[in-house]
């Protein structure tokens, strides 16, 4: 359960203040699938970094599963990133020197999972994304779609409750986009909460709930309300 209350985030660049998040309120339930749509620079990534405990807000309260994350130490936040949250990025963010298998294995190593169990879980996660055959390829030997699958496998291998995807299909063609989206939706069907960030209205519309962001301000979009999205984009 994600609860954002009055979250603010400002950046000061050369004396100029940019308000990236402006009094944001958002609640995402345990098994919810929410898409966040907005133009470039509207604060989507900033919001996701805060939800993912990668960044701290300047103001407001963020409760994760009922606990104010301000109470956590750096070490505990790292553990939360590892266990509760799975990230999928637009640029895949795989380690180029490691194979697909090793990339997926990495979060488990940081959690101190035994070698034997790692083998089982990594194999499971990779076959789940349909990459059972390419475990020992390096990212540069894989297509963009395949790399993103590895990233999804890495996100789910820790069995997180929340998947945060920041434009996961931004670098993919339409066919692979559909494949990745199907995969995310399958994860949702299996009980994960999903926060999907995109600026593609079609993709945003696949989610049961869609939130619009503009200049750091959130507004809910009615279900099936593609008009509201168009209106926000105009």
């Amino acid at each position: 359960m994600i609860e954002l209350e009055d979250i603010q985030k400002r950046y000061v660049l050369g004396g100029e203040t940019v308000t990236a998040l402006d009094h944001v309120n958002l609640t995402v339930g345990d098994h919810e699938y929410v898409s966040i749509i907005g133009p470039s620079g509207s604060g989507k990534s900033t919001l996701m970094n805060i939800i993912g405990c990668l960044d701290a807000a300047d103001g407001g309260v963020y409760r994760l599963d009922g606990v104010d994350i301000a109470r956590y130490s750096q070490r505990q936040l790292a553990a939360i990133r590892g266990r509760k949250i799975g990230f999928v990025f637009q640029q895949f963010n795989l380690l180029q020197k490691l194979t697909a298998y090793e990339n997926v294995e990495l979060p488990l190593i940081y959690q101190g999972v035994s070698e034997k169990e790692r083998r089982v879980r990594v194999g499971e996660a990779l076959s789940r994304v349909g990459l059972g055959q390419r475990m020992h390829h390096r990212p540069n030997q894989l297509s963009g779609g395949q790399q993103q699958r590895v990233a999804v496998a890495r996100a789910v291998v820790t069995r997180p409750s929340i998947i945060l995807a920041d434009e996961p299909t931004g670098n993919l063609d339409s066919k692979t986009t559909v494949e990745i989206m199907d995969m995310l939706e399958e994860l949702h069907a299996q009980g994960n909460a999903i926060v999907l960030i995109t600026h593609n209205p079609e993709i945003a519309a696949r989610a049961p709930r869609c939130v619009h962001i503009r200049d750091g301000r959130l507004s809910e979009v009615e279900p099936g309300g593609s008009r509201a999205v168009e209106g926000g984009g105009a």
Binding site: Q74, R75, A78, A79, R81, N93, Y110, R154, T158
Partner: peptide, 16 residues
Amino acid sequence: TREIGIRKAIGAPRSA
């Protein structure tokens, strides 16, 4: 730097 960022995002503590 980027590698470090990725490692941290997937749960690497400072000590690691």
